[in-house]
Design a protein around this nucleic acid. Structure first.
Lengths: 210, 210
DNA sequence: ACAGACGTACCAACCAGTTGGTACGTACGC
DNA sequence: GCGTACGTACCAACTGGTTGGTACGTCTGT
């Protein structure tokens, strides 16, 4: 069993990179097998169809990114607002290198599959909103801590952070330039700072970082 | 020649709806011809390749949306900041009906084509940033009017509005629900309001470093 | 021996793109 | 006013390569 599942793992990882490079529709099963270094027989041994692989790839992505963010250092701050801001800073620093290295697999995939492969759409949605959910508690705590009288919910702000990131990826692709994505994340950080500093009159906000 | 170009126009319009429904890669030329009610011969009479149609579709989208926004009522306000806020409100009100009816053709297309069809990517980029450009003057005027001492540029805020919108589309698709997109646009409006109301240390006076 | 993990060979459907045409309008010489 | 030469708009049938998927054989660990 040592080597068991080796092909499956290779296929899933190959899927993540290929979907980021060319999207789900344009990625062929042959592409995938070539990239993974396995044959088609192996592919159809583990996945009943290309669609089923799509779902599995979204779930795999959730697992991979879930682990990355779970062990990321932004959780270390004492103040919940600091944790939220540090999360945004962490996302900002992930914007490095070539575009396919930092864009979101499920964000790319859901755009092409939401109307045609409901199961893939659902898996992508679960990935995005599951990740957003990890921010809700900190946002909610920050809201009560600071007595923010909001016309918005913690859930909606958490979702908004993901919207900005997904949109930043789209713009980075459109311009073929990471810079525009970084600037959007900067606007997001500024928004969160303003949200939590504004309603308290002109009180000197907490220490500003960076 | 009343009928002349009729097929081309039908093909371009069919392309816009099909790309929004299934994406560029998954849309076949046969799909396109069936939807447009013309034959393949007509398609290849007007377009040398599917890729060339992709570029033409992006340009067509620019023209269609350009006209829509040019005649939209948000330009009527006297105050530049009001125009920007009314633009955001206008975008918010466009979020109606089924998802493929309000999402962005070029935002969808660029995600799947940016790495494989540089010309399509470029046309999509021109569409998005061309549209963002229509906001820059008003934002810049609002900045000087209100003496906003910004760590950001009018261009970057204009781009950020598009990032939020594109991201809102992605989330709407992922959740299969328009509501989450609307909430993100609300956050965007709140951000712009905060930006122009919160830290007015430097008023209309000349910049005096205190 | 046998069950799961692959590999090899293959197929039917489908795809972008081609070929060779028809229908029709226009320009022009006479 | 009329024939002809030519250009544009479009159509239907076809092609060669590709695609997702299948059938079945072989290897490996236990």
């Amino acid at each position: 069993m040592a080597k068991a599942q080796a092909a499956k793992e290779k296929l899933l990882n190959a899927a993540l990179s290929l979907i980021r490079e060319k999207g789900f529709s344009a990625m062929t099963v042959d592409d995938l097998c070539a990239r993974a270094g396995v044959t088609k027989g192996a592919f159809f041994h583990y996945f009943k169809s290309k669609d089923e692989l799509g779902v599995a790839a979204a779930d795999h992505w959730s697992a991979v990114t879930g682990a990355l963010f779970a062990r990321a250092p932004y959780h270390d701050h004492d103040d919940p607002l600091d944790r939220v801001l540090a999360y945004i800073e962490f996302r900002r620093q992930l914007l490095r290198g070539e575009i396919p290295e930092f864009t979101c697999v499920v964000g790319t995939m859901v755009q092409e599959t939401y109307g045609q492969h409901p199961e893939i759409r659902e898996a992508c949605g679960a990935s995005i909103f599951g990740h957003a959910g990890t921010l809700v508690d900190d946002i909610a705590k920050a809201m009560t801590d600071r007595g923010v009288a909001a016309g918005w919910t913690a859930e909606s702000l958490a979702a908004h952070t993901q919207a900005v990131l997904q949109g930043a990826f789209v713009l980075a692709k459109a311009k073929n330039d990471v810079g525009v994505a970084i600037e959007s994340v900067d606007h997001l950080r500024r928004y969160v700072e303003l949200l939590f500093s504004a309603p308290q009159k002109k009180k000197k906000t907490k220490e500003k970082k960076r």
